[in-house]
Design a protein around this nucleic acid. Structure first.
Lengths: 351, 351
DNA sequence: CTGTTAGCGCTTTCAA
DNA sequence: TTGAAAGCGCTAACAG
């Protein structure tokens, strides 16, 4: 573990001063061709790598961006993060990643940690108990790009049009004759949750169909929670005939509940999932999915941040709205009379 | 965006010198209770946050660890990373994450980037074209924990016992009467690939069953690749009756191929998947899975690294070997004569 | 127990 | 075009 070469070593080897060495390597200011050649050679020979910490100290910029999401094992976030990392890498910027576990307390701790580390900017995914004021205060201190979060003041963010997504998906199910439609989405405190509930409500309102509020389950997104919720709903006298599962883990829980209750898709129950994962595509029957361009979210977020970092502070409150698509597959069917009134069918396929 | 308070401001406000302020906040050396109180108060009042960059500069340690995996959208890695992050967070260490896309060139670029950033240590997932010498050289410079990689010299790592895993899974299929068993795994250049092939071979050898090398497909792990490979195998005259799908995307590709070819599990073809994902559990039929404790891999890696960072350089070449388990589900069945000789059945379930 | 001082490695005025 | 020197914010000798 030999001590790393410093710029002084390079300067000495090249027979110039440190400042010339610095200028030569950064191609900044006026430097003679001779100096550039000598310094470059010396640097290569010594295996010199500029100390990013010292550079940060001097320049005030770390070349590091922090990103916080609730859970990066969630495939939806994973794809967004991948896109962010790809874009940042192209810009030579590193990514400091941490998970909030949907815990506001932890989020703050992490933000403080990142701030202390002098990250150049922050990308924040949705998190429980988000407070727009908190965000606004934070954004006053450093560039912040929010994903699907409400903002106060003029700040940048990337939003997905969950409202119209939920509207469209609910309409689709209503068109198939369903009215006992369960909406399951993570937290109504979060923007996506609120938007989805609004879309769902409006779809019902359009038809003049009254809403059963007990069918809106906007709480935890854990699989076991979704499982027990779905199971109890399915066991009720006026059981639902369709599920809008707007969370990866929620979908898993509902599918499991369906199997336990001996219901089949789409005969007994119609299901719409979220995000176009392998699961939705490969499941048998394949699952109709409400989705959007996940990588675009990540790329846009990174792009927005990079732009701001490069000083091109655009109109500040730049916001992107991405639209959703409903990918039609086999998991939805017209409402079967039998499913709501007649005796319940037993398991139709091996479970 | 008010300028952040520095330790000088704190010292002045507390009426002490910077060094006393520093000592008070770091609880290092001898400091009077009075000083601690005054400094703590001043720091709080000023909203002081120590500049981690300056601290790193001075102490030589950044409190940041770098991690490189081929693809963090892969749910298996995602779970490992989650565990790593959780453990590191508990230790106040941050995680710099990047994806190699299984590209040796990119891996080196990233390692250099991280080194320049003076990360305290590195956790490296498997990557194509890994070279043990490269790793050894790297590890001479900084603490490196390798995951499922071959090492030269004495270095630490966490390994999964893919050999016995593949052995056990292959035995299981052989016991069911299968001999036309396809082994699909990412890259035979990587340790996991090599180990699995060895386990597969040895299981056949135990029975004295000859191996058909064309059934070993250890190349790319892309879904479309797996799909076309599986489809062509299924279309051959002596089609396989079982698939060992040792990659998340590989499983997806094979399942899709099965559907396209109109084969059903487990009647026509038996399938074993990897990693205990929702997909394996929820698929219909549920899929027998070769798995291991993913979070344990991450926790162990973080632990090993943290240990080394804290100076307790243990016997150096500390290596952990994790065992695999075969989770029995419904996707495997005894070899059906009809499947290999008689006319092929058409799709049995709606696709 | 506390203050003074010397840098960590780098970039960037400022003069030459 | 180049070099000398200052100093980013912090910690750690060292002297008091």
């Amino acid at each position: 573990m030999k001590p790393k070469a410093t710029i002084r070593d390079v300067a000495r080897a090249a027979g110039v001063s440190v400042s010339t060495a610095s200028r030569a390597m950064n191609r900044a200011g006026r430097v003679s061709a001779d100096a550039i050649v000598a310094v470059t050679r010396a640097a290569r020979d010594l295996g010199y790598e500029a100390d990013a910490v010292a550079q940060s100290m001097r320049t005030g910029s770390t070349g590091v961006v922090g990103m916080l999401v609730s859970d990066f094992a969630n495939p939806l976030y994973a794809r967004i993060i991948t896109a962010v990392e790809t874009r940042l890498f192209a810009a030579g910027t590193a990514l400091l990643l941490a998970s909030t576990h949907n815990n506001a307390q932890r989020e703050r701790t992490l933000v403080d940690l990142f701030r202390r580390r002098r990250v150049d900017g922050l990308i924040l995914g949705p998190c429980e108990a988000e407070s727009p004021e908190y965000l606004a205060r934070l954004a006053a201190d450093m560039p912040v790009i929010a994903l699907d979060r409400d903002f106060e003041g003029d700040n940048a963010g990337v939003h997905v049009d969950h409202y119209h997504g939920a509207l469209q998906a609910t309409r689709y199910l209503l068109n198939l004759g369903h009215t006992r439609i369960v909406l399951m989405t993570p937290g109504s405190i979060l923007r996506p949750g609120r938007e989805r509930i609004a879309g769902y409500r409006d779809a019902f309102a359009e038809r003049g169909v009254p809403i059963d509020p007990t069918l809106i389950r906007a709480e935890k997104s854990a699989m076991d929670f979704a499982f027990s919720e779905a199971l109890s709903l399915l066991g009720s006298s006026d059981a639902p005939t369709a599920f809008l599962c707007l969370g990866t883990r929620i979908l898993s829980g509902v599918l499991l509940a369906l199997r336990h209750a001996g219901r089949t898709m789409p005969e007994d129950v119609s299901v719409i999932s979220i995000g176009d994962t392998d699961m939705s595509e490969l499941f048998n029957p394949s699952i109709t999915s409400l989705t959007w361009d996940l990588p675009a979210v990540g790329t846009a977020a990174a792009e927005l941040l990079l732009q701001r970092l490069s000083g091109q502070t655009p109109p500040r409150h730049e916001r992107l709205l991405l639209t959703t698509q409903l990918v039609m597959r086999e998991s939805c069917g017209p409402l079967a009379r039998a499913a709501t009134t007649g005796p319940r069918k037993l398991a139709l396929r091996p479970s």
